[in-house]
Amino acid sequence: KAKLLVLLYAFVATDADTICIGYHANNSTDTVDTILEKNVAVTHSVNLLEDSHNGKLCKLKGIAPLQLGKCNITGWLLGNPECDSLLPARSWSYIVETPNSENGACYPGDLIDYEELREQLSSVSSLERFEIFPKESSWPNHTFNGVTVSCSHRGKSSFYRNLLWLTKKGDSYPKLTNSYVNNKGKEVLVLWGVHHPSSSDEQQSLYSNGNAYVSVASSNYNRRFTPEIAARPKVRDQHGRMNYYWTLLEPGDTIIFEATGNLIAPWYAFALSRGFESGIITSNASMHECNTKCQTPQGAINSNLPFQNIHPVTIGECPKYVRSTKLRMVTGLRNIPSIQYRGLFGAIAGFIEGGWTGMIDGWYGYHHQNEQGSGYAADQKSTQNAINGITNKVNSVIEKMNTQFTAVGKEFNNLEKRMENLNKKVDDGFLDIWTYNAELLVLLENERTLDFHDLNVKNLYEKVKSQLKNNAKEIGNGCFEFYHKCDNECMESVRNGTYDYPKYSEESKLNR
């Protein structure tokens, strides 16, 4: 008799109507990190870190770059004969040098303040090359056809396309004075040089004057150069050297050249137009028929994500570079809930034993079982409120962090190594801060989002509990077992918050 009662009780308990509160689960393989956990499985997430590029040089917003090819900045601007293909260059979106560009200054020497000139050019998007001192009329008392084997072109001695090597005419090199007034309405880049012979005999042979000088002056520039005559090792078949100089001439300003020898005179100059998204990159990537809004030396990035880990040097509207390998923000729920887990921000989770793959029309909802059958029903209101809140948060985070910009490298010469090392340390410090901030932001927001979901499920549970009161009992896994019969209409009233407690209280009292 006792065995019969136990079996009867078990049958009745199993047959009781139930309603459970749960949440969506799926077959997603997404994982995120939080402050407290690593690799948390979630139903949905968004990636904030771009880690792919196309490996190509592309047009930037429809404008092609200027590819210097086998030449570098120095060779292009001075007019190395091997860089003749660059003479027609007028406009570009950015400038590309190759790491091993070999054609710079063909006659050995240095372009002074080269690093600063590169910085200036990094904001130039177009130029006009014009004859600042016409070759045939500007130097009537001097020979202007100086050439050298060091600047050979097609097997013949030649010289820079933008400079003139002035030497004596006959047996004399009379003092020369020439000036140019900038009437271009924009900055003009003027380049010139000073020749330093290897011996007094060479000085006399070329310029006749043993104590020659070169003077260059404008409103913002004033220097006097004296040739340094000295024996030097042979470089590119030359014992002599040429140093090259430049200045930016403001609109309306005048530049005056005065010399008694050794002047490498300007022939062509450049009127410059600035462009905020221009820059110089060093890259071996090849040019393709493609378009982008962000270019790196590795390749083009076409992404609206706020961060990238491809390269710190970028041109155009680019994500911020960070050292992170993963920045994924959760938008959905835990896919593998932890039992009795309390989140960092106070939300209680884990009283549900598992997510439901059968509930596909919402994030949170119900599963019921009664004599009429069983089924899932999503709670659309709480789901939609959660979707709206999380979507707004993700968009806000992306908008705040998605300050796209150009980031170019800084140039230092060989004598500025300590400054370069200090600059690298400062840049590394800023990069570490950006990386830390980005990672911390994602970790915190992921923790908040998961706790937010847990709290929403808990609130749904409490909503049902407050309606049923003692007409049902909690069975410990997020479910309630009714003390009365609850048909589909009754189940719907529980879900929509209109459950009639008094209607079922007498039946429940008897069954309790």
Rank of each mutant, 00 (worst) to 15 (best):
A2F: 13
L7Y: 09
L8F: 13
L8D: 02
Y9I: 14
Y9M: 07
A10Y: 09
F11K: 03
F11M: 12
A13F: 12
A13N: 14
T14I: 15
D15N: 01
G22A: 08
N27E: 04
N27P: 02
N27M: 04
T29H: 13
D30R: 02
D30I: 04
L36I: 09
L36W: 06
V40E: 07
A41R: 13
V42N: 11
H44W: 09
V46W: 08
N47E: 14
L48I: 13
C58S: 02
K59Q: 10
L60R: 03
A64E: 15
P65R: 03
P65V: 05
P65H: 11
G69R: 15
C71W: 07
L77D: 03
L77H: 04
G79S: 05
N80P: 00
N80M: 02
E82K: 04
C83Y: 03
L86S: 07
I95C: 10
I95P: 03
P99Q: 11
P99S: 05
S101T: 14
S101Q: 15
E102C: 00
G109P: 07
G109N: 05
D110S: 10
Y114G: 09
Y114S: 15
E115S: 10
E115P: 14
E116V: 01
L117V: 07
E119R: 10
E119K: 14
L121Y: 02
S126C: 01
L127Q: 08
R129F: 05
F130W: 11
K135P: 11
S137E: 13
P140L: 11
N141D: 06
N141V: 07
T143I: 02
T148V: 00
T148K: 07
S150M: 04
S150N: 09
S157H: 11
N162M: 04
N162E: 05
N162S: 10
L166K: 00
K168E: 14
K169Q: 10
G170E: 08
D171G: 06
L176S: 11
L176I: 15
T177H: 12
T177P: 00
N178M: 11
N182H: 05
N183S: 15
K186W: 00
E187C: 05
L189F: 10
V190L: 15
L191A: 08
V194R: 00
H195P: 02
S199E: 07
S199Q: 07
S200W: 01
D201C: 00
E202T: 13
Q204A: 15
L206Y: 03
L206A: 03
N209R: 13
A212H: 14
V214D: 07
S215I: 14
A217G: 03
A217H: 14
Y221V: 11
R223Y: 09
R224Q: 12
R224D: 05
F225G: 00
A230P: 00
P233H: 07
P233W: 06
R241A: 03
M242S: 11
Y244H: 14
Y245K: 00
W246A: 02
E250H: 12
I255N: 03
E258A: 03
I264H: 05
P266H: 06
F270A: 04
L272M: 12
G275C: 11
I280F: 13
